[in-house]
Structures are given as structure tokens and as C-alpha cells.
Design a protein around this nucleic acid. Structure first.
Length: 211
DNA sequence: AGCCAGGGTCTAA
DNA sequence: TTAGACCATGGC
């Protein structure tokens, strides 16, 4: 069976240097909530249309109605606005200071994030990796589908996490890049069956599982 | 475990 | 133009 490193090398060779989410921790936090079950284009639309720079101070100054109205194109406006508020409040507990958050133990931090209503495992891991530079491998629907098509037969996200974390250097940048590559692959190749003939994984990909 | 939250965009007809 | 699938999910 192909290893986690070999998969990474293939993805890298095919798609090139992956992009980083954002160097601004607060933007990562907000966008990670906005993107839940939402197309990325809608997230960019909302983020780009913000009347002022997207800072915690600015978000706190908005009324609930204003915030909901600004993020409406991403859907679930009520729920997401409330989650962004709770997340911002939590960040305020660390004085909006990313360095302070980064000093917290990874598992402690993950649990803190998971306690915030609206933040599940995937969103927590996205925030951990991209905002606070913690090596917590992100498992999402694309990751599961990708591995399914490689016929791995994992039965839980924990198994998947262990597969990646034990097969790679413990490095937050690597995890972030890897996640981005899986997404890029999933979006550009594995959503449309015809493209899969040219896919780098075609020889080992179970095409019958394509949607 | 399955269903619900819900606006926007793309596609096939 | 219209119906329907789908979107970088999480909560109950």
C-alpha cells in the first residue's frame, strides 16, 4: 500500500507548491467557520467585501444583525455569526494575541477550541494548523473520500489521523500543505469522473467509487 | 444514526 | 428558467 509520504510526493509533483491558508490567524479563524459546508468562492466574496479590515476589534463592534448580514452569502448566517462571536470572545481571552495562544499545549488548545459551540474536529484542526502552527492533521470529507478511493478501508478519523501523523514528520507546515493538496486534488480531479483518466492516482484509484 | 440549519452557484434539461 | 445537486460541516 502507498505510504503517506509517497502520496504527498505525488500530490506535490502534480499540483506544485501548495498555498498557505493565510498568515493572519484571525482571518483563518473566521474563514474556517465561514467555509463550513460552503463553496470557497463564497468565503472570498464575503471576506473581500468586508467594509473594514477583518479584525477581532472590528467584529466585536458589529451588531449581530450587521455581522449576519455581512456573512450571509456563506449561508447559515445566524449560526455562523454566533460561532464567530464565541470564537472571537475566546480569542479575546488570550488578548487577541496569537503568540500567547501558540504557547499553549496542543491538546489543551484543541480541547479549548472543541468546547466552543460550532467548532468541530475539522475546524479545530484547521485553526490549530494554519492559525497557531500546531501539527494536528486535518481529516475532512475530501481526505476520507481520497483514502477510500485508494482502498485503504479506514473505519474512523482517528485511524486516518494516525496513518498520516505516524507516516510523516511532525511539522505543521507539512500538514497544512498536505491538507491543501488533498483539497486541490479533490476539487480539480475527483469530482468529475472524465478527468480521472489523467489523474496521477488513476492506477491505484478505485474509480467505481466516484460520484 | 440521520436529519436539519440555508444561501449561492453550477449544470442538465 | 427551473429543478436539483452540491458546497473545505456541526449539533442534536
Amino acid at each position: 500500500m502507498i505510504t503517506a509520504s509517497e502520496i504527498y510526493e505525488k500530490l506535490l509533483a502534480s499540483y506544485g507548491q501548495p498555498r498557505w491558508w493565510s498568515d493572519n490567524p484571525y482571518i483563518v479563524m473566521v474563514q474556517s467557520v465561514l467555509v463550513q459546508n460552503t463553496a470557497w468562492a463564497s468565503v472570498e466574496k464575503v471576506t473581500d467585501a468586508f467594509p473594514k479590515p477583518l479584525t477581532p476589534e472590528y467584529v466585536v463592534s458589529l451588531s449581530t444583525e450587521e455581522l449576519e448580514s455581512l456573512i450571509r452569502p456563506c449561508g447559515f448566517a445566524k449560526a455562523k455569526a454566533a460561532t464567530i462571536r464565541r470564537l472571537t470572545e475566546w480569542y479575546g481571552g488570550h488578548n487577541y494575541h496569537a503568540d500567547k495562544v501558540m504557547a499553549v499545549d496542543q491538546n489543551l488548545l484543541r480541547n479549548e477550541l472543541l468546547q466552543i459551540k460550532g467548532i468541530g474536529a475539522e475546524t479545530a484542526d484547521v485553526i490549530l494548523v494554519y492559525a497557531f502552527h500546531k501539527p494536528s492533521f486535518i481529516v475532512d470529507a475530501y481526505t476520507r473520500r481520497f483514502l477510500d478511493r485508494m482502498s485503504f478501508g479506514f473505519s474512523s478519523d482517528d485511524e486516518i489521523r494516525i496513518f498520516f501523523e505516524s507516516g510523516l514528520y511532525t511539522n505543521y507546515q507539512l500538514y497544512g500543505w498536505y491538507h491543501w493538496l488533498i483539497l486541490e486534488h479533490g476539487i480539480s480531479c475527483c469530482r468529475k469522473t472524465p478527468l480521472c483518466d489523467r489523474c496521477i492516482f488513476a492506477p491505484i484509484c478505485n474509480v467505481s467509487k466516484h460520484r
